[in-house]
Computed example of a mutant assay.
Amino acid sequence: MHCNGCDTHIEGDYNLPVMMQLSAPDQQFVLDFVKSSGSLKEMAQKLGLSYPTVRNRLDDIIAQLNKFESDEQDS
C-alpha cells in the first residue's frame, strides 16, 4: 500500500476486510443500500431498475461476501 499524500509505504501480506474485496461498484451499491435503510424498493427507484433485478444484485453481493469469509476461514 502507498499513500501519495505523505509517501508512506506499507508492505506485507495482509487480508483485506471482506467489504474491501468487493468491486468499487458493489461497494457503492452496499453503501447506497445502507443509506436507503435497507429498502430494496427505494434502491430500485434510485437505480431505475426493477425490484427483482436489485434483489438479484444484492443476492450476488451476499454470495461474494460469503465466499470471501469462507476463503478467509480456510487460510
Rank of each mutant, 00 (worst) to 15 (best):
L31Q: 12
M43G: 09
D71N: 13
E72F: 03
D26V: 04
D26K: 11
D71R: 02
D32I: 12
S70R: 14
V54A: 02
D71W: 03
I61R: 09
D59C: 05
G38A: 09
L16W: 02
M1L: 05
I62Q: 12
Q45F: 05
N4P: 04
G12Y: 06
M20T: 05
S75C: 03
D74C: 00
A63Y: 02
L65S: 04
M1N: 07
I61Y: 01
E42R: 15
F33V: 13
I62H: 10
S75E: 10
L47N: 14
D59H: 05
D59Y: 00
K35H: 09
Q64I: 01
F29L: 11
L40H: 02
M1K: 14
I61G: 01
I61M: 03
S23K: 15
F33W: 14
L58M: 13
T8P: 00
N56I: 08
V18A: 13
S37R: 15
G38E: 04
S70N: 07
Q45W: 02
N4V: 12
S70M: 02
V30R: 06
F68L: 04
K46M: 13
M1C: 03
G48A: 09
C6S: 10
F68T: 04
S39D: 00
L22N: 10
C6Q: 08
T53Q: 13
V34R: 13
L16V: 12
N15Y: 06
V30P: 01
